[in-house]
Amino acid sequence: MTAYENASADSDSTRTCMVRVCRDCCCGTEGKHPGVDHDGLLARLEVGTRGSARVLRSACLLACDESNVVVVTPSVVGRRAGGRPVWVRAVLDDETVDAVTGWVALGGPGVADVPAPLAQQVFAPSGLSLTWTAV
């Protein structure tokens, strides 16, 4: 049984999205985006989604051309309503972070439509296939 199937229908956890923030080789670096307060934006995202999402820092999501990348994964409720993970590019300013946090507060993917300010920044990740080698 998956976590989605196991969550009770009235649990707060069924309404909690996950926001994965890429922080590795390109995203979140001064080298690629000088003058951006990366730590401040991450803190703003964490505070703004409190109670409606878990924010996770991620290693490279293999979308370096799109940085800074954030992936909003639907809650159980959103997934049941047909929501799927939404990839957002160029999360580089307060306005974009606020659009993400506002959307998540409304329920995120599957529950609320992507807000207009984010529509141009949503993208489909490339179809990279990763080959895992046993060591």
Rank of each mutant, 00 (worst) to 15 (best):
R89I: 00
D113R: 04
R84F: 08
L42H: 15
L118G: 02
C64S: 08
E66V: 00
L42Q: 15
T73Q: 13
C64A: 05
A105T: 04
P85F: 10
T73R: 08
N68W: 13
Q120V: 04
R54Y: 07
R80I: 04
Q121S: 06
S58V: 10
V86L: 10
D93M: 08
A90P: 00
R54G: 08
V88G: 02
F123C: 03
V122L: 03
L45W: 03
P109F: 07
S58H: 10
V76E: 09
R50L: 13
S67C: 14
P109Y: 08
T73H: 13
C60S: 07
W103G: 02
N68C: 13
N68Y: 13
A90M: 02
R80E: 15
G107H: 11
R54C: 03
A116D: 14
A112Q: 11
S58R: 10
A105F: 01
V76A: 11
G48C: 06
V69K: 08
T101L: 06
L62C: 06
A116P: 07
V122G: 03
T96N: 05
V122F: 03
Q120Y: 05
R80P: 07
G83Y: 13
A99K: 03
G102A: 11
G78N: 08
E46W: 05
L45T: 06
V122E: 03
V114Y: 04
C64Q: 07
P74T: 12
G107A: 13
R80T: 09
V70S: 05
D94E: 15
R57Y: 10
R89C: 01
G51S: 07
P74A: 12
V86K: 03
